[in-house]
């Protein structure tokens, strides 16, 4: 069974309604190759991704830098150009929106950025930063803004002392809370979190992750949680997708993917994670070389160049994301998946 059909079938019967569907999404950028040359190359940052999020899901998107996970997140909020494919929010397309429609999407989908230092305008007070959404969408005026901002700030752990401070007076973790308040004040349905804790220390990370879990319950949110940190992903999400070179190579329930990884890349990824337990034997598979660039990638399986179990067919034919194994939700794009 292919993933698309699976998604479509699910819409009809399953428990929670589908909130977001990404269908065959391609995001290409063209870049100039070399200076002087007018020749352009195509970066296929996202190269045919399908996924669907049910209401209340925390969908973890893992992968290494350059795999397209950030671009995917940005495409959903309209910051990356969609070359081909569809993004549906509650069944309505949100690709290429402008004007009032873009405004409406902004109220439903919000993005939290990775770098807490560059995501807050350095010349604005917290009140201005968090209240900007209210102002933009005409939801409040004058002191109402300050009051609503304060209420939201209190929810993420600040008080009135912090209301008129500038961003430079805050630490990384505090800044991430401010970003969160800024996103939440519009009461979105879907929050895209792009590596929200990777710039933070572990003890601060724990506070933020807990806060995110609480807030998800409280505001009835759906998360698309993008991270390279497998530990964080495992803790936060109920379903995950593994990306490699613009492709979704494996997706399924978190426990299935972590306990029975089927794709060789997922297996390598899981074995690469250093364990804090000195007694855990490290039986890691070392990959040869660096990830290839997404500039004009070769045909066939994206992982073929580095795969330890590569076969001739892998270099010719790209595998489709199809169902393998026992769990109904577990899909892998591999010709020779590891199924036990």
């Amino acid at each position: 069974m292919r993933y698309n059909n699976h998604v479509n079938r699910k819409t009809n019967q399953s428990h929670n309604p589908i909130l977001l569907t990404v269908e065959d999404l391609h995001v290409y950028f063209s870049i100039r190759e070399g200076w002087l040359s007018r020749q352009r190359a195509t970066v296929k940052a996202v190269n045919g991704v399908n996924l669907s999020l049910q209401q209340g899901d925390v969908f973890g998107l893992v992968g290494e830098s350059g795999c397209g996970k950030t671009t995917l997140g940005r495409a959903i909020v309209g910051l990356s150009p969609v070359s081909h494919g569809q993004i549906l929010l509650k069944g309505r397309s949100i690709v290429g929106l402008t004007g009032q429609d873009a405004h409406e999407r902004a109220r439903q989908v919000q993005l939290i950025f990775q770098d807490p230092y560059s995501s807050l305008h350095p010349r604005k007070t917290v009140c201005d930063l968090v209240g900007v959404g209210l102002k933009l969408h005409g939801l409040a005026n004058g002191y109402e803004i300050d009051e609503q901002v304060l209420a939201m700030l209190k929810r993420v752990g600040f008080n009135i002392d912090h209301l008129y401070r500038y961003a430079h007076e805050f630490s990384g973790g505090q800044r991430q809370r401010i970003s969160l308040a800024r996103a939440l004040i519009l009461r979105p349905k879907l929050l895209i979190l792009d590596e929200p804790t990777s710039a933070l220390d572990v003890s601060v990370q724990a506070q933020i992750l807990n806060l995110l879990k609480e807030i998800r319950q409280e505001f009835n949110l759906t998360f698309l949680f993008i991270s390279h940190d497998l530990g964080v992903i495992r803790y936060m999400s109920n379903r995950i997708g593994v990306m490699y070179l613009g492709h979704l190579v494996e997706t399924g329930a978190t426990s299935d993917v972590f306990e029975h990884p089927q794709h060789p890349y997922t297996q390598v990824l899981l074995s690469s994670l250093p364990s804090i337990d000195p007694d855990t034997p490290s039986n890691r598979t070392l990959l040869e070389g660096d990830p290839p660039t997404p500039i004009d990638p070769p045909p066939g399986c994206p992982f073929a160049q580095r795969c330890p179990g590569v076969k001739p067919i892998c270099r010719e034919q790209a595998p489709e994301l199809i169902h393998h194994g026992n769990s109904p939700d577990h899909f892998t794009a591999c010709h020779f998946p590891h199924v036990d």
């Binding site: 290494e64 497998l230 390598v268």
Partner: peptide, 11 residues
């Protein structure tokens, strides 16, 4: 660095 690269470098 990414985890797979980190593993290479540490080794």
């Amino acid at each position: 660095l990414d985890v797979t690269i980190q593993a290479q470098i540490l080794a």
